[in-house]
Design a protein around this nucleic acid. Structure first.
Length: 776
DNA sequence: CAGTGAGCGAGCTTCCGCTTGACTT
């Protein structure tokens, strides 16, 4: 007889718990929150500051089941996570299930082990209403900020935009980084390196050293090289210093996302999807966590595993503590459920992520790596400056044997000759310099954010939670505040001076710098919205806003303040700003920039964010004839567009002339410039300027298009009129009911396929597609 | 990746955190 009902948040957790607790206990899950503020309305009675809750559509069935089970049970145990949100979930459950808040048993555990759970059952408490109120304050504040601020944007900038405590500040980070990069002035200096020939136990080897100082100008560097060509070099000092390296703590959501991006190239949401799969298969612990804590069970298992596989000296028991802002630590760190499971079966991605988690976890329980750092100082006769050679050798690899954390700026081959082993030399030894080089080096602008490095920054600032990092990054891209893109590098020339055999040779080389891939770049809309919010709502945009309100939430949780007071206090300052901004009828639209006057009509030319994004406008709404509009090209920006470029946009569409009884026009559309003739569109290739294109060239392109069009239809079928084999840029493919399908290589000669074979291929791909789409 | 090509008149849009979903063409 199941007399007890235990309710947790996650279904997977429920299953595991049921095994531990035995037949007296039925375990169910809430699947997160079961109530929320009304979805459609504002959801808060602002006069009394009362939240208006409802059960979301997709939770009604589940709530009904919970109610039925609760009615049958003699005792209900609320076992949601031990954090603010978890406490609120328990409270909502108690309300909806008609349980007494004062007496209903509330239990918590941070690790899912039998002892931890039985221990929790032994020590139940009741719902902490102060903590619940802290959550209500958090929820209400976010709703007020989001639902009051967004409409201001709809009115002032563009419909459907959004603003919020977390997303707006995330966009700010990206906009400001972009501005830093724009404003960055690269400075160059000359770095001097030298190679000395050393007799190392009968073998001649190179000793690379760098000058202790850099030169500002080419001339200074040249003078220096001249000066040292006939100097003497002597080792004046050798110091050896032992150093230690420590393993990184076990994974949290944020660090897992970062490391999976750096080491495996996963996007943040990809990582979360795979981790979810591993969790549901029982292979890893919960993947949304801010804790670095490992259960003692796990620590012991690591210890045993390390000793068996690497030896006694590699093991070192460690416990980690979080230092990230606002961490609530309701779960363990992300770790393998069973340490002795070194490998898993499954697809490649699952395996790789599991492997990463396994290594990180085990490495966190391994010994420090020990190294010896050697610094050799080389004196130059008659000079203040000296050459310095450094080398580091690992004397004991410790955790490095298994795992090394990657850095954000890691490049493939960063060995600048500074690491590694140095040849054997002694103090006082005279050296022969074989060559010296002065190479021009430039200071680098800050790097744009990747998804993962943005998550890192958000965590540092205490913005967002493990469960929201990935969704937030999707949101700001969906709203088109930010896009993920590549930045082509620029070519830069640099000078190298090389001293060899008493002669200095100068060479000019060039390199491509600043190439960035899959980086977050702000759009015009993102920039305009950010600047607008910064101007009118600086408090919300302050990087410390979240941290400040968190202090208030803590006060509420400790019972020192009433939650409504905190909200009332905030709203008192916020509401007038909203009202004022809404009613502010300034002459110009937000983000508008006047470029000048149209030389033909004399009318005002301006750029702004239009209904469909950035546009140029000639004339004003008050003019007798309507203003003309033109959309900006994809590579143009509101902030940098010039009057000339703006006027250029109005020169299209233009008419080239007649061909076969119809006009040829040249226009520009969503996919770049095109030729329109007889209702058919032909793209104009990149290398041809649509402003310069001749009618002859246009006709040539039209005919070329017709030709490929003709060659497109390889084979049709009588029995399946909607099926066709077509020829495209990448060879033959299938066309069926207005959709394209790839032909697998195994299909053989496309012309020999039967209709049935084609349909089989299509069906197979369609079902794969359906799987993919449903995941979205 | 397989070819695509519109133009600010109804309406509606939006937050942050918890959690996992599965319109058959």
């Amino acid at each position: 007889m199941q007399t007890n009902l235990v309710i947790v948040e996650s279904p997977k957790k429920a299953k595991t718990l049921e095994k531990f607790l035995g037949s007296d206990y039925k375990v169910m899950s809430s699947k997160g929150h079961i109530r929320d503020l009304k979805k459609k309305d504002f959801g808060i009675d602002l006069d009394n500051l009362t939240p208006e809750y409802e059960i979301p559509e997709d939770q009604t069935e589940r709530v009904k089941q919970l109610q039925e089970s609760a009615a049958q049970a003699q005792e209900v145990w609320l076992a949601s996570d031990e954090d603010r949100e978890g406490e609120a979930i328990s409270w909502h459950l108690a309300q909806v299930l008609g349980l007494d808040i004062a007496t209903t048993k509330r239990i918590v555990f941070h690790e899912i082990t039998k002892t931890a759970i039985l221990e929790a059952i032994e020590h139940p408490r009741t719902i902490d209403i102060n903590l619940v109120n802290a959550q209500q304050a958090r929820r209400v504040l976010d709703r007020i900020v989001g639902f009051k601020l967004s409409p201001v944007l709809w009115k002032k900038i563009k419909p459907s935009l959004s603003a919020g405590r977390v997303q707006s500040v995330s966009v700010r980070l990206i906009v400001e980084r972009e501005r830093e990069i724009e404003a960055f002035q690269s400075e160059s200096s000359f770095k001097v390196t030298a190679i000395f020939k050393v007799d190392d136990n009968g073998q001649v080897s190179d000793l690379h050293a760098e000058l202790s100082q850099r030169f500002k100008t080419r001339d200074e560097a040249e003078q220096f090289l001249k000066a040292i060509s006939n100097k003497e070099f002597c080792i004046c000092d050798i110091t050896k210093k032992p150093t230690k390296k420590f393993p990184a703590p076990p994974f949290t959501t944020s660090t897992l996302q970062q490391e999976a991006a750096r080491k495996l190239g996963f996007t943040v949401s990809q990582t979360m999807m795979i981790a979810q799969r591993l969790y549901e298969s029982g292979l890893i612990t919960y993947m949304r966590t801010d804790s670095v804590n490992l259960s003692s069970l796990c620590i012991n298992a690591c210890n045993k595993d390390i000793k068996e596989n690497f030896g006694e000296q590699y093991a070192k028991v460690r416990s980690y503590h979080t230092n990230s802002k606002g961490a609530q630590e309701a779960h363990e760190a992300i770790r393998p459920t069973y340490i002795d499971k070194h490998e898993i079966s499954g697809n490649m991605q699952d395996k790789r992520l599991y492997n990463l988690i396994w290594k990180r976890t085990v490495a966190s329980q391994m010994a420090d790596a020990e190294a010896e750092k050697t610094t050799i100082r080389i004196n130059i006769s008659g000079e203040e400056m000296e050459f310095v050679a450094t080398g580091e050798i690992i004397t004991f690899d410790g955790f490095l044997h298994l795992y090394r954390e990657s850095g954000d700026n890691d490049t493939e081959n960063e060995n600048d000759g500074e690491n590694g082993k140095l040849p054997n030399v002694t103090e006082g030894q005279m050296l022969n310099m074989s060559e010296a080089t002065a190479a021009q080096r430039f200071t680098q602008p800050p790097l744009r954010y990747t998804e993962a490095s943005l998550v890192k920054k958000m965590e540092e600032l205490g913005i967002g939670r493990p469960s929201t990092y990935a969704p937030t990054i999707s949101t700001i891209q969906q709203r088109e505040y930010v896009e993920k893109g590549n930045k082509a590098g620029v070519k830069r020339n640099y000078i190298t001076l090389r001293l060899k055999d008493g002669r200095i040779r100068e060479t000019n080389k060039s390199e491509i710098v600043g190439t960035e891939k899959a980086k977050l770049i702000p759009t015009d809309i993102g920039t305009v919205v950010n600047d607008f919010l910064m101007q009118y709502f600086p408090e919300i945009m302050d990087y410390n806003f979240t941290a400040n309100v968190e202090k208030d939430f803590d006060d509420i949780a400790e019972g020192n303040t009433e939650w409504q007071n905190v909200i009332r206090q905030f709203y008192k300052g916020f509401d007038p700003l909203i009202k004022k901004t809404m009613n502010d009828r300034s002459e110009h639209k937000v983000g508008e920039r006047v470029l000048g006057n149209d030389p033909v009509s004399g009318k005002l030319v301006s750029v702004k964010i239009g209904r469909f994004g950035p546009v140029v406008q000639v004339g004003e709404a008050s003019d007798s004839d309507k203003p003309r509009f033109a959309q900006l090209n994809k590579d143009q920006s509101l902030q940098t567009l010039t009057l000339e470029e703006a006027l250029e946009l109005f020169k299209l569409p233009r008419t080239l002339g007649m061909y076969e009884n119809d006009v040829i026009t040249v226009g520009t559309g969503r996919f770049g410039p095109y030729i329109l003739h007889e209702n058919k569109y032909t793209s104009i290739p990149k290398e041809i300027d649509p402003m310069e294109i001749t009618i002859e060239k246009a006709i040539e392109l039209i005919n070329l298009k017709r030709q490929t069009e003709q060659q497109k239809h390889l084979k049709a079928f009588e029995e399946e009129p909607e099926l066709e084999i077509r020829n495209g840029r990448y060879g033959a493919y299938l066309f069926y009911k207005d959709k394209n399908y790839k032909l697998p290589k195994s299909a053989g000669d496309p012309l020999k396929l039967t209709a049935q074979q084609c349909l089989d291929i299509i069906n197979e791909q369609a079902s794969k597609q359906a799987n993919k789409r449903s995941k979205k």
